[in-house]
Amino acid sequence: MTEPVPVAVPRKGRPLEAVLERVAAVADTENAEATVDQVTSVLRYEKAITKGKQTAEKGSYERLVEYSDPADPSGPEFTLVRDDREGKPRRIVFDSLTVELGGTAVHLVGREEPFRALRTHEFALGFDAADLVLEEVVSLGPEGVSNLAAVNERIDPTESDVRVVTGLGDTVYHTLLGTPEVVPSGGELDRGFLTTYEGAMCISPRYERLVEAVLGMDAVRGIEFVYPENGQEEEAAIAEAGVGVYLTVTGNTARDHGLVLGEQLFPSETVLLENTAEVDAEIEAVRSTITGGLREETELWA
């Protein structure tokens, strides 16, 4: 029997939900949609426990046993990891699931950092946030990147064999935000504004290299990155700084803090990735099944 094709996926959160939703849409497996709904429900419940919004009547090990079916080796499995919260408590996250995609058995394998698992050639295919690609391997240049199509062009082939294949459409945007006082009268809060702006720009601490890649090094000259204080809302910190970059969906929270929504700089989206050195005919077939019908502008390999 042919071994299933392993595909690295996130263990939790919005990116994993986007992956499971896509898999359910294209899977041959009977009841794939119901299985995916089950996995999503479990993880949302576990997240609610993590956030203190739910109280579990049973311990984590008991819940872990309930979520898995030992009689179904291809069914969903979960695992325990140590969370980053104070005290490092356990958290139940996704571990694996086997589905049929285009007649090929595919083993979805949970990883903390799928992108890095592809970089080390553990997997030929995987899903992760586009943000991580910018943080890790996109080269910094005078000009920034504004869309997924530009990402592959900025990956040094001697640095990594991993490339973005397509986005899954679960898009929120890294958006330029500012107070009305810093926006020129009649002007736009966009990349052009940054060519003359000098001063503080508030961002999340881990996103410094991402913001540099998105804006370009010319645009960040004269800009000092500042960060929210511990426990401070990002929008409140940006309002204090005057200008910042943060993820927005509707922008309502930003407006509540008196901020103007500027240019949507880059899509924060779950993407399908491939390690080009590991692609063979079987991988190509799985890739084709996953990408079939996705919007054409994000299909970078076609």
Rank of each mutant, 00 (worst) to 15 (best):
V220G: 11
G258N: 00
V245M: 06
M217E: 12
G242E: 00
V211C: 14
G262N: 12
T248K: 00
E240P: 03
I238Q: 09
E198T: 12
S268K: 09
E263W: 04
T195G: 06
E212D: 09
V243A: 09
A239E: 05
R209P: 13
H257L: 05
A236M: 14
M217R: 08
P267D: 04
L261N: 12
T270S: 15
L247R: 09
G242M: 10
E224W: 00
P267M: 06
L215P: 07
I203C: 00
T195H: 11
T270K: 06
E235A: 12
Q264A: 07
E208S: 14
E240R: 12
M217S: 04
I203T: 07
L261T: 14
D218V: 15
E198M: 10
V245A: 07
E234K: 10
A241H: 15
D256M: 10
T196A: 14
P205Y: 13
L194W: 01
E234C: 00
N252W: 05
T270R: 12
C202D: 13
G216Q: 09
G242D: 01
F225L: 07
V243T: 02
L247I: 10
N230Q: 00
V220L: 00
E240K: 07
G262Q: 10
T195C: 00
G231D: 07
V226W: 05
E234N: 10
E212A: 11
A213L: 01
P228E: 06
G244A: 11
D256P: 03
I238P: 12
V243W: 01
P228H: 03
A239S: 06
C202R: 03
E233A: 15
Y246D: 01
L210S: 02
E208Y: 03
L215R: 04
E234S: 15
T196P: 14
V214Y: 01
P205M: 11
L215G: 10
P267E: 06
Q232S: 09
E235S: 10
T248I: 15
E269Y: 14
V211G: 08
L210K: 06
A236P: 03
S204L: 06
T248A: 09
L261V: 15
E212W: 09
F193H: 10
H257N: 13
E235H: 04
Y246W: 02
V249S: 15
A236L: 11
V226Y: 06
V211K: 09
E208K: 06
E212P: 01
V260L: 09
G242P: 04
G251L: 04
V243P: 03
E224C: 00
V220Q: 07
V245W: 07
T196L: 14
I223Y: 02
T270P: 01
I238W: 08
V220D: 05
G251Y: 06
V249W: 03
L259K: 00
T195Y: 11
D256W: 03
T250C: 10
Y227F: 09
M217T: 15
R255G: 04
E198D: 02
V260I: 12
A239P: 03
A239C: 02
E269S: 08
E224I: 08
M217H: 04
L265H: 01
A241T: 14
G258D: 01
D256I: 00
P205Q: 13
E229A: 10
T270N: 11
N230Y: 12
A200N: 12
Q264D: 11
D256C: 08
L259R: 05
A219M: 06
E198A: 14
L194A: 15
P228M: 08
C202I: 08
G192T: 11
